[in-house]
Design a protein around this nucleic acid. Structure first.
Lengths: 224, 224
DNA sequence: TCCATAATATGGACGGCGTACAGAAAGATG
DNA sequence: CATCTTTCTGTACGCCGTCCATATTATGGA
């Protein structure tokens, strides 16, 4: 697949597997997960649609490879620096994942569209478990806790992205809060007393601050 | 839309909006979110495909209505019984949501495919906030905590469903654990020491027991 | 009773999708 | 220069969401 060896005869390839993934990512960012199409990718790299099948056996395989590359672009950064406090490492990792997923919104649907069992997904979990073990958790507890964290991180981004029209450029965090606040203020207080009472807080669901608020509480619960 | 009044003239409708949603849900359960099609729904209820547009303006609207009805089928059960201890109510609600989502796997992608801002979604959050307030949280903390719980619940199901081939009938929990265990046992211990060491635990990621383990820890962290 | 009206149904079509199959192109090897 | 191998292209099939024009079938008024 990625072996540099082999292939000593035959017509040379017009593009590379990476170019195909580049085009897929471009389409993903431009129009969301639904806008990624074999035909669009082919047009962008300049080959016939069915020529894509020389590189990947199906559209699902393209998306799988894209997910793997995507996860690979996140790992191996600061949070493997075991000199740092473990909570700081975990927060850095969570924030970095979040930033990557927000930068390429639409990727979440792909991530959640199939099993995350590739090497980079495993490495990600390995990193999480390592930090949690450094926090004093026994191996099995660290394993369970790392899954809870994965659920929280991907779930938070999934809910956040679900609110966005992926065909448009995303509004600023401030604008999103304002829009949500305006909608919440139109709700009848009789039907949703607590929601309307805390509308100011609820409108900030998708902010980085709320993300960290939850992450901190969850880490507290996991440590005790 | 659902008003029983009106419509005193014109050709009578061949089916009902509910029948369309029934058919959509049937297709969802049979083949996953990708298998839900206007043409399939129309064939099932016995009308021409474009006749569906008399009831809903687009496929997206059908799915939106299906999501709303789906959330409505979950609410209003045991966890509004404020005589029960708040943690017990929350666990019951989380488990009920989980059971519903697992019974109709494929619905998760729909839920996460658009904003959950309908009446039933708001009511769900209202119930969560109420239970958390009964647990002693201040209103704004309860609002934030309820969002954390939503993230955990939907995230857990999303990750769980992502592992399943939605076109097949789901294997038992026991079989899924065994399958995952077998895969994990093939991993090189050098590359993933913690993953292989805790393979027995990791293979149980998708069990009800792990779901409750995480829920308990999260509630602990939210209460402190 | 007959007709205008209004709501709903259908037939057919358009453009787009993933992808299968047959055959043409293009470089390496003898 | 002929052959072999790999890749690319042309074409086609079946499915999709949705639009337009038209037919169907009830009601309300003359």
């Amino acid at each position: 697949m990625t072996t540099p060896t082999g292939r000593r005869t035959g017509r040379p390839r017009a593009v590379t597997e990476q170019a195909i993934l580049d085009a897929a990512l471009w389409q993903l960012d431009a129009g969301g997960a639904a806008a990624v199409s074999i035909r669009g990718i082919a047009a962008q790299v300049g080959i016939a649609p069915n020529a894509v099948y020389t590189y990947y056996p199906s559209k699902a395989a393209v998306l799988r490879a894209l997910v793997e590359r995507f996860l690979g672009d996140v790992n191996h950064d600061r949070f493997v620096d075991r000199e740092q406090p473990w909570r700081q490492r975990l927060e850095a990792l969570a924030l970095e994942l979040r930033a990557h997923l927000v930068a390429h919104r639409g990727a979440v649907q792909l991530l959640l569209g199939g099993p995350m069992d590739g090497p980079n997904a495993l490495t990600l979990r390995e990193s999480l478990s390592e930090a949690l073990a450094d926090g004093g958790l026994a191996p099995d507890d660290a394993a369970r806790a790392s899954y809870v964290l994965l659920v929280y991180i991907f779930g938070a981004i999934a809910l956040e992205v679900a609110e966005l029209d992926q065909r448009r450029i995303p509004p600023t965090e401030h604008d999103r809060v304002s829009t949500r606040r305006a909608v919440l203020d139109t709700l009848p207080a009789e039907a949703y007393p607590r929601t309307t009472e805390t509308a100011g807080t609820i409108s900030k669901d998708f902010t980085t601050e709320q993300f960290l608020w939850g992450l901190t509480r969850i880490l507290n619960g996991l440590q005790a």
